[in-house]
């Protein structure tokens, strides 16, 4: 089982990183030939950075649009972020100074799991109950929620109900990072949790989870509003000047 999961995580990690790198490279090299920021837009680079931070940290546009989606979406994402930070303890040496903050925020991460799950269930409820959102939802949208809820629930169960040997889990992952396969506890919940996480890592670059890198490349959000001051020219478009 340890070998199987070790291989699974190696494969998942390679696919996640390679897949994301390929997508990001694709976004990077594809030119944005025209200035199309949604205005009013910042007129300086610094302003664009602030706009992007507001978008990524506060979900500004979503807040303008719909308070329920914002609330559930925000609960899920912030919950997930805190839970992920808590999980750092499985991968780093928390006795070293630079990681000494990880144990400090871990208790928050523990309860953030609830925010994450409630947020996901709220979004799922809307997907089923609101006619407009039900119409635009496909099987993959429901499956993605099921996957995330499964990860959240199995993880929370281990934290609050059926504990696993987390020291052994840490040894397993630290071992993976040094290419040495250590024994992984075989609790069904843990195997389920890790299996779902591996699936999530694999589908990340193949699915709508690409919104995470995508938002940074969105021309309507990341362009400076200065078309009169600077000539903006893509290479394929420049050829038409001749």
């Amino acid at each position: 089982m340890s070998v199987l999961y070790a291989l699974l995580f190696y494969v998942a990690t390679v696919l996640l990183i390679a897949g994301l790198a390929m997508k990001i490279r694709q976004y990077w090299i594809t030119p944005a030939p025209l200035k199309i920021p949604t205005t009013p837009a910042p007129t300086t680079r610094g302003g664009v950075v602030l706009r992007m931070i507001r978008e990524v940290v506060l979900f500004e546009s979503l807040f303008k649009s719909n308070k329920w989606i914002w609330l559930f979406g925000y609960m899920f994402h912030v919950g997930l972020a805190l839970v992920l930070l808590r999980h750092l303890r499985y991968f780093v040496d928390t006795t070293s100074f630079i990681w000494s903050w990880v144990p400090l925020i871990s208790p928050i991460g523990k309860y953030a799991a609830f925010a994450m799950i409630i947020g996901l269930l709220g979004l799922w409820a809307r997907r089923i109950l609101v006619e407009r959102i039900r119409y635009i939802s496909g099987p993959s949208d429901h499956l993605m929620l099921a996957l995330l809820v499964g990860i959240g629930l199995s993880g929370a169960m281990m934290t609050f109900v059926v504990h696993t040997d987390i020291v052994a889990v840490k040894i397993f992952f630290l071992g993976l990072m040094r290419f040495s396969i250590q024994p992984l506890p075989t609790d069904p919940l843990l195997l389920l949790h890790l299996g779902l996480v591996a699936i999530l890592m694999i589908v990340f670059p193949l699915s709508k989870l690409l919104h995470a890198p995508g938002v940074f490349f969105s021309p309507s959000r990341n362009q400076v509003d200065d078309p009169r001051e600077k000539r903006h020219l893509a290479s394929w478009a420049a050829k038409l000047d001749k």
Partner: peptide, 24 residues
């Protein structure tokens, strides 16, 4: 077009079907 317009590529990939735009 996908190789010429970054916006098109990013927009086609990124939608999560959150429903924010549905009534706009």
């Amino acid at each position: 077009l996908l190789t010429k317009y970054r916006g098109l590529r990013v927009y086609l990939d990124s939608c999560v079907k959150c429903g924010s735009c549905t009534d706009k």
